[in-house]
Design a protein around this nucleic acid. Structure first.
Length: 423
RNA sequence: GUGGCUGUAGCUCAGUUGGUUAGAGCAUCUGGUUGUGGUCCAGAGGGUCGUGGGUUCAAAUCCCAUCAGCCACCCCA
């Protein structure tokens, strides 16, 4: 073969498209029922929109191009900067709260590996213009609502919730200086994946005492159901508001009935520095994070807008697809096509009636198909089965039969009464 | 970006110490049978052995490069 798909980008055959549509449909359905409205943005943006948020190094990680006017453009690696730009542009005209979602196709020029491709879809859910932690609760609830929708249980996936400012305050109290803060956050993020000694070594390297490390570990290991109270009791300096927020978040999520999916966990810090409050990730054993998000109150200012609170999360389709397949959560109709009626000429000379009936089924909005080739009824029924059809319509010169493929049940009727019942 | 593993039909693989026209199952297509289905039978198509060099009388098999996939880092918006 002369050509193949570009590295990290995949061809979407019908069976792949069925999976992808299943995911996108569920994302959209859940978003809408939680009161979010859909938006989209251009697939190309000025390169600077991304570098202003993530630093100039980010340019290496994305697909860039120069247009004929010499402008530096990039295929969007995320949609949040576009969202910030769009909201900032109409900030005074938009009714609050702004609850928006999007299902953008994104590209990142990273090295592909399991669960990470260079082109993918990502569900984004954001609430903008609301300072209250209730906005964070709303996003987290929507995330859990989706997990339930696709049949993932708390035993299979949990949303781990942390707080950037609380962690910062805690680390400061344990003697981490501001310059070493990034390294400390990195160590925290890695703690679950590396040996205890390696974690301690990382903290000692930035000057944290052995006693402080032990105290920190003991604090971090507080069970999720008690840690919020423990944080409140410890009265971390400078984080009073965030502590109250975390308590409010815990009680809001409990009131919304999603408690069993939530685990408060200060190891969750998220990579980018732009998070300013609550942060969270949906984590399933054995996979990279399925979703991640948090509060980012400074982003609108970064793109030249006014000061405006914002919070939200993103979820990629690749890891999610792997997880659903692994856990056997994909509906069976995804493996076969789905068709309602397969129309068969059960007697010679009835092909014109097959065409007529098929066309009228389609006109009535039902999915119907027939074979291009005239062959025996056995082969046609086999084809109906292979197509995943629900019913076979057997057309005779006088009357027709409607056969339910799954049960083999068959009812006799006439073309007119059949079509009458259909509409 | 760094390191490692892998690469034979659409898929899963076989292919003896390098040695004639590279095989199987599944899938696909065709025909037959069952003649209202999930069978069964027969046949066919499909591979320049990822690609390009090199060693050799001879390379799927050995060497180098390159591409792609996977794994671990980096990163994860």
């Amino acid at each position: 073969m002369k050509f193949s798909a570009v590295k990290g980008m995949r061809d979407v055959y019908p069976e792949d498209a069925r999976l992808r549509n299943y995911i996108l449909d569920a994302w959209r359905r859940v978003s809408l029922r939680n009161g979010f409205e859909e938006y989209d943005a251009p697939i190309l943006e000025y390169l600077e929109l991304f570098t202003v948020k993530s630093g100039p190094e980010i340019a290496e990680q994305l697909f860039g191009l120069t247009d004929r006017g010499g402008r530096n453009l990039a295929i969007r690696p995320e949609i949040t900067p576009s969202l910030a730009r769009m909201v900032a542009a109409k900030i005074n005209a938009l009714p609050r709260p702004i609850k928006w979602f999007s299902l953008p196709r994104l590209c990142r020029a990273e090295r592909p590996q399991r669960g990470r491709l260079r082109e993918f879809f990502q569900w984004n859910v954001d609430v903008i213009g609301v300072e209250s932690v209730q906005a964070d609760a709303e996003c987290i609830f929507t995330l859990v609502d989706f997990l339930r929708e696709v049949g993932l249980s708390p035993a299979e996936i949990m949303v781990r919730v942390g707080s950037r400012p609380i962690v910062l305050s805690l680390l400061r109290r344990e003697g981490v200086c501001e310059e070493a803060m990034d390294k400390a956050l990195l160590a925290l993020d890695k703690r679950q994946k590396i040996p205890a000694e390696a974690f301690e070594a990382m903290l000692r390297e930035i000057g944290v005492s052995a006693g402080a490390i032990a105290g920190l570990c003991e604090f971090l290991d507080t069970p999720p159901e008690r840690i919020v109270q423990r944080i409140a009791d410890s009265g971390l300096p400078g984080a009073e508001k965030e502590i109250a927020d975390l308590q409010e978040l815990e009680s809001a999520l409990a009131a919304m009935g999603v408690k069993e999916y939530i685990a408060f966990d200060l190891h969750i810090v998220r990579g980018l520095a732009y998070y300013t409050g609550v942060v969270y990730e949906a984590i399933a054993a054995g996979e990279r994070a399925v979703a991640g998000g948090g509060r980012y109150d400074r982003l609108l200012e970064l793109v030249g807008g006014p000061e405006c609170p914002a919070t939200g999360f993103g979820m990629g389709d690749v890891v999610l697809g792997l997880l659903l397949a692994e856990k056997g959560k994909l509906p069976p109709e995804l493996t076969a096509g789905s068709l309602e009626f397969y129309v068969i000429d059960a007697e010679e000379g009835t092909f014109r009636q097959v065409l007529d009936i098929t066309a009228r089924l389609r006109a009535a909005g039902r999915s119907a198909d027939y074979g291009f080739k005239r062959q025996g009824m056995g082969k046609q029924l086999k084809e109906a089965d292979r197509r995943g059809s629900k019913f076979a319509v057997l057309v005779r010169r006088e009357g027709l039969s409607v056969k339910t493929l799954a049960t083999g049940e068959q009812t006799e009727t006439t073309a007119e009464t059949f079509l009458e019942k259909i509409r």
